[in-house]
Design a protein around this nucleic acid. Structure first.
Lengths: 193, 193
DNA sequence: TGTTTCATGTAAGACGTTACATGATTGG
DNA sequence: CCAATCATGTAACGTCTTACATGAAACA
């Protein structure tokens, strides 16, 4: 139930309408917890019913501005301190690696170098985001978002390096007479441990 | 629809029953695409109806052994070459980082060092797995699983380093007079670009 | 004979995605 | 006055989780 707590967390910063929250989900949180409009409005209704948020003001066009209640803040703290984050498991891109043998060697290598390119592109996008954002701005999301962004930068650096390494591994294992020692060239173990 | 293709992929190696597949989902694929029993049996029924797999043999206790059909193999290849892997987005652990300001500094740092410990533990588990598995064994999953496992090792190495870095950042930003330059100590930018 | 392992399935509910539906207000 | 933006909601569909239900075969 992370969406629930993402909404609560965004409301700590300042009151907001569903429409406002959508913008935040599409910018700051887009890379860690995207949400659709119907999800957000549904969750707001449920949080309101549960007493974790309140309608603080109503504006034009039926706009409802929500604030977090004391109970909501307590629930957010409970989530942060007493529940374990769910491990990220499902990874479509890495799943596919298991089955690359059904492709030709060229196709398989192409898949991995494609992943590397994508990772590089995403890294560039995040770097640009980092250079664009005004980090002096107020708001807890901005402050801690810096830490999250750094995670993204490191993740995609790693991702690109791994995909290129794996592509080389595939090439190496296809070469005649090179099948005994699959990976003496670019093993990262030495530097990691 | 990755589950569908994960099942197809596992059946390329050798024919298997739902029960056999469950074991593979709980071992080799557990870290990239876990599946529950009801998911697997449901998917097998659907794949059979779609003509992508066949019941090749029936055994004791109602055991049904499935093989992949030509159409199934074609579909697997189509998935690998013509569809884009879905980007991993939702990350509960990193989402929480955005909201750490609602905790005390000690709690926030505790959260991050906790993440680091977990990452280290997972890295150890994967390393043990790597040392345990017989990589000479047959089967495409075993061969390419090596590449996937390497991804895991690199991921959790990065994860641990990042969490420890973030914990230090938090501590640094809380120190009096150190608020102008948030992160001059351990920035990885220099080594990454 | 009793426990473990093998083996398959169904059902309810939570969650997420996509699409549809509606309309007020603002600004040019 | 027309287009863009603001603003909220519902419905259908698919997937995943959890729990339940059943029973045959192997083995000790």
């Amino acid at each position: 139930m992370s969406l629930r707590h993402a909404v609560l967390g965004l409301l700590v910063d300042k009151p907001a309408s569903g429409y406002d929250l959508m913008k935040r989900f599409n910018t700051s949180l887009a890379n860690v917890w995207p949400a659709t409009q119907s999800q957000v409005y549904g969750e707001l209704a449920r949080l309101d019913a549960a007493g974790l948020i309140d309608v603080a003001a109503e504006g034009p066009r039926g706009r409802k501005e929500y604030t977090i209640t004391d109970a909501g803040l307590a629930e957010l703290r409970r989530w942060l301190t007493e529940t374990e984050p769910k491990r990220v498991r499902n990874n479509d891109a890495v799943l596919r690696v298991f089955f690359l043998s059904v492709l030709t060697p060229e196709q398989a290598r192409g898949y991995l170098t494609g992943l590397a390119e994508q990772a590089a592109a995403t890294h560039t996008r995040l770097q640009e985001l980092k250079d664009t954002v005004d980090w002096e701005e107020d708001g807890m999301v901005t402050v801690n978002g810096r830490l999250a962004l750094e995670y993204g930068l490191r993740l995609f650096t790693m991702y690109e390096e791994w995909a290129n390494w794996a592509a080389k591994e595939l090439a190496a294992s296809k070469e005649p007479g090179a099948s005994e020692e699959p990976g003496a060239s670019n093993e990262p173990g030495a530097s990691n441990e």
